[in-house]
Design a protein around this nucleic acid. Structure first.
Length: 399
RNA sequence: GGUGAGUUACUCAAGCGGCCAAAGAGGGCAGACUGUAAAUCUGCUGGUUUAUACCUUCGAAGGUUCGAAUCCUUCACCCACCA
């Protein structure tokens, strides 16, 4: 029983630190019904969750089935410093109102996956504000600069002669201190958070919390481009609140190679089943497109339902296989005798008339499914369907 | 505090008085081919009612010049080294 649970928990993880401890927590649950605290941190700056977040969330949901109580930590205090992982720009401090709003929006999304009765939302400003300069200085004595510089990204930047600010040293310390306050038994995060996660362990020891959190690291999900990590700012994401049709279409646009990665990290199918599927595709007995469709259907179903997923697929096939128009196209009203380039801009299909002109010259623009080549034409009264490229549509009423 | 280097379009990065809306790469968009996949090939990639044209852009503001991303001055920011 415990071993089974452990195997399920370990599935897809990149690294686990202190498996013995996790085993102990599970034993406590199975034998005595003891629950334990699992910490996960979120930045309150981005309120839209995407598939990358769900890798963590799904793992948490699994843990919740085995006795975990989730501490969903909103890093409202640390967010203003900015995580040094990645680019560092001085961030604006968010006001209380905005933070609460983001947190609320998080909860709406998070509980599509997590069990609300086993989750608690906490804000680290609560204790970090109270920490004071005194406490902060105390905290900084517990870790050395040399060890801080061991951290991979600091090391690289230091050697490359790039700037590292003191506040960036504070970030992992404060995040680790959260684990002290929360007395977490386990923390889950992406592999890029390894240093920060370990800091929690280190500080729990230093502060004599009486336990050291186990660490569960999940791989970072690549974005739609298959190279960089999925993030909203890079625009390579699939948001979990996006329309079913969009989610479906985005999944279908990923490369075959990336599809297996998504299967591994997002699908609920067993690893054996996925391996089998992969084999069938590589020996040609199963079409990769079908495999991708199944994946897309599974993911859409998770956030909506089977019916919506089916409709999304039909819509997709209609538009891209049969070259028909999508069923819901935005409508715009345009004045008569409108220059085509201007109309394209007004219908929000193009950003500028110059761009519109270029696209027309390249044969990317269609009116009522017919390709046009004259960038000087005007639209007279009537209703038209404008299309730019393969996926941008708009209906216009000209009068 | 001293010395030196730097700030160019979405990103990196060339340019060092006119041929600069600004090389090149990446990214993005579009076309061909497809499974709206990848790979590949091609075109485009500041704006403007139609442009061997004009306008805005090369950290900011001034100046020199017929003419400046390029030279000078001041300011801001950033980095390294020395203290």
């Amino acid at each position: 029983m415990i071993q089974e649970a452990l195997a399920e928990i370990a599935r897809g993880t990149a690294e686990i630190i202190d498996t013995e401890r996790i085993e102990k927590l599970l034993r406590g649950y199975f034998e005595e019904g003891k629950i334990y605290q699992v910490k996960v941190g979120f930045d309150p700056t981005a309120a839209d969750l995407h598939l990358g977040h769900t890798v963590l969330l799904q793992k948490l949901a699994t843990l919740q089935r085995y006795g975990a109580h989730v501490q969903l930590l909103i890093g409202d205090f640390t967010a203003m410093i900015g995580d040094p992982t990645g680019k560092s720009e001085t961030r604006k401090r968010l006001d209380r109102h905005t933070v609460l709003e983001h947190a609320k929006s998080y909860q709406e999304q998070v509980f599509k996956i997590l069990d609300i009765t086993k989750t608690e939302v906490v804000f680290n400003s609560k204790w970090l504000e109270a920490l004071g300069v005194d406490g902060l200085v105390g905290l900084t004595t517990l870790f050395s600069v040399a060890r801080m510089l061991e951290r991979d990204d600091f090391d690289k930047r230091y050697k490359a002669g790039q700037n590292i600010s003191i506040s960036e040293f504070l970030y992992p310390l404060l995040q680790g201190y959260d684990s002290v306050e929360l007395k977490s038994d386990m923390e889950i995060g992406g592999t890029d958070q390894k240093f920060n996660l370990l800091m929690g362990r280190h500080l729990q020891r230093a502060y004599g919390v009486g336990k050291e959190q186990a660490i569960l690291m999940m791989p970072i999900l690549e974005g739609l481009d298959g190279v960089q990590k999925m993030s909203k700012s890079l625009g390579n994401f699939v948001g979990i609140t996006e329309p079913a049709n969009t989610i479906y279409a985005k999944i279908l646009s990923i490369s075959d190679e990336l599809m297996w990665r998504y299967y591994e990290l997002l699908s609920k199918r067993s690893l054996d089943e996925i391996a089998h599927l992969q084999k069938s595709v590589s020996d040609g007995s199963f079409h990769p497109k079908t495999a991708k469709e199944n994946l897309a259907l599974e993911i859409v179903t998770r956030f909506y339902n089977e019916e919506s997923a089916k409709i999304a697929k039909e819509e997709f096939d209609n538009v891209f296989k049969a070259n028909q128009l999508p069923s819901d196209i935005k409508e715009y009203e345009i004045e008569t005798d409108c220059w085509i380039c201007k109309a394209l801009v007004d219908a929000e299909l193009e950003l500028s008339t110059s761009q519109a002109r270029r696209d027309i010259q390249q044969g990317a623009v269609r009116i009522d499914q017919v390709k046009i080549s004259d960038d000087q034409m005007k639209l007279c009264d009537g209703e038209y369907t404008l299309q730019v490229g393969k996926r941008k549509f708009a209906k216009v009423k000209v009068r």
